[in-house]
Design a protein around this nucleic acid. Structure first.
Lengths: 267, 267
DNA sequence: GATTATTTCAAACGTTCGTTTTAAAGTCAA
DNA sequence: TTGACTTTAAAACGAACGTTTGAAATAATC
């Protein structure tokens, strides 16, 4: 077989080009001709090696997510083993889940920031085949981490934990995918961000690390925020009218905190 | 003019159809023929009334964002006027900014959940014309709120506040746009969510309200989380290896809290 | 009611899309 | 070297895309 010489090189070159172009332009706006030209292969090569454009996108994700989700499961295994029996701390769980992903951003060999941005953008992709692909790809990992958080926060309603997982996923995806949004929206204020054009070998590492150290406290703070009070005052908006109090202030109930430990993060 | 009878009806019918289809399929995957068929107008009507497909998308946003951002500015005006001189509480600022948007989700006349989801999805849109459109559309509002947060949290580095604004925007956008993501990813666990097919008159209101009461505490908790420590230990990942401590736990520095007030949310 | 302006309509424009086809080139085992 | 198999290559496929055209229909102005 020529797999070790040219075939693999062709496949890999297509995957690399597709990963970058999908990230840059989005799936629909990236044509096969653009991809194959960037990869310096024949137009028919994608259909030959992957079958279709949809299958190509899935493969772009699979080759990265396989490592990521395996790492996530292994980390959780080890943590639970070391804790032998007692529930983990939320910070450990978050670090295992999000930290793994952020570490991918630091390592171009694992996909780097290019893949992270593509992932963030694609998670909101409306296309059906994308959604069902992610569903199967993520199912096991999410279930494990969900259960771990349930154990870590036994006094918190499970529905609430699921919601906050959702919020945390969103904050991270956006933080990664929307690098331009923060620039545009904040008036190019964050001066120490990485360049977005060149795939920034060193810039990407720096960006991922800074993002990590800023994002994790935010996520933990959100996860452990006080529960909302459940008597909802029906807020009627009044076209620049009266009521600005209510649920914005959350409830006065107990803060979310792991049961038998005080956690190192106090405020 | 026929603007009051048929012309406006045509324009509006196109905008409504486009809003829904862009939300459902994304911009690129929604064709002019799909839009005009759904709106029951001639294919050429979009180009006649709006000029191009891009201009149509911009108009879809403009007719909603005009109200939203005006409301945001008015709310901030009033809050600062009532506070006469002293800085606002972070919870007030967040409620004015995010609460306005979430109230749009409750009111179909303002766009409802359909528009909110479209907004969330489009903020990560790579297309250049979309980004520059949002940049000009949001510039004034973001600047005002940024300054308000700077005043509200004078002890927090400004770059940190900007980052956390970004995280909050992301959490909310995702929470709105990724309704299917949370279902798919969590195994359809959140049982009390609104339907996603029919534009759910009453469902949409309920969903937006529940989302609001769960999201706001999360955002406040994240915004006011402890600052990260700034001596970054270079975390090397080790393919299921050693280090799981470090920045996940954040720093031990003071929590972010407005200067001269204790805030009602304690944990 | 005639005239002007506005809006709708069917048809076609040229381009680009993802995919397929058919043949040539390359690779490896016997 | 032969023969089977894999990979590349150029060309073409039909379909769908956003947009334009020019005439018919409708509404507004005088």
């Amino acid at each position: 077989m020529t797999d070790q010489k040219n075939n693999l090189a062709t496949r890999e070159r297509i995957l690399d080009a597709a990963e970058w172009l999908f990230m840059e332009n989005g799936y629909e706006a990236t044509s096969m001709r653009l991809i194959t030209r960037a990869a310096a292969v024949n137009l028919a090569a994608v259909n030959y090696h992957f079958g279709s454009k949809e299958a190509l996108l899935c493969e772009v994700f699979r080759r990265r997510l396989a490592w990521i989700n395996q790492e996530r499961l292994q980390l959780l295994d080890r943590l639970e083993q070391e804790a032998n029996g007692s529930p983990l701390k939320p910070s450990q769980i978050l670090e295992a889940f999000f930290g793994t992903l952020l570490r991918v951003g630091e390592d171009p060999a694992l996909g780097g920031m290019t893949f992270l941005r593509l992932l963030g953008r694609t998670l909101t992709e409306p296309a059906e085949f994308v959604r069902s692909f992610f569903a199967t790809e993520y199912a096991a990992v999410i279930e494990r981490y969900k259960q771990a958080l349930f154990r870590a926060l036994p006094d918190v309603p499970r529905a609430e934990i699921v919601w906050r997982m959702h919020f945390m996923l969103g904050a991270m995806s956006y933080a990664i995918a929307g690098t331009d949004v923060i620039r545009v929206v904040t008036g190019h204020d964050v001066s120490d961000m990485a360049g977005e054009d060149e795939q920034g070998d060193e810039d990407g590492r720096m960006f991922a690390r800074r993002l990590a150290q800023r994002l994790m406290p935010f996520l933990l703070g959100g996860l452990r925020a006080p529960l909302p009070s459940f008597d909802v005052p029906a807020v009627r908006h009044a076209h620049a009218a009266s009521s600005i109090e209510d649920w914005a202030t959350g409830g006065r109930t107990a803060a979310i905190r792991p049961p038998n430990q005080s956690e190192e993060m106090q405020q």
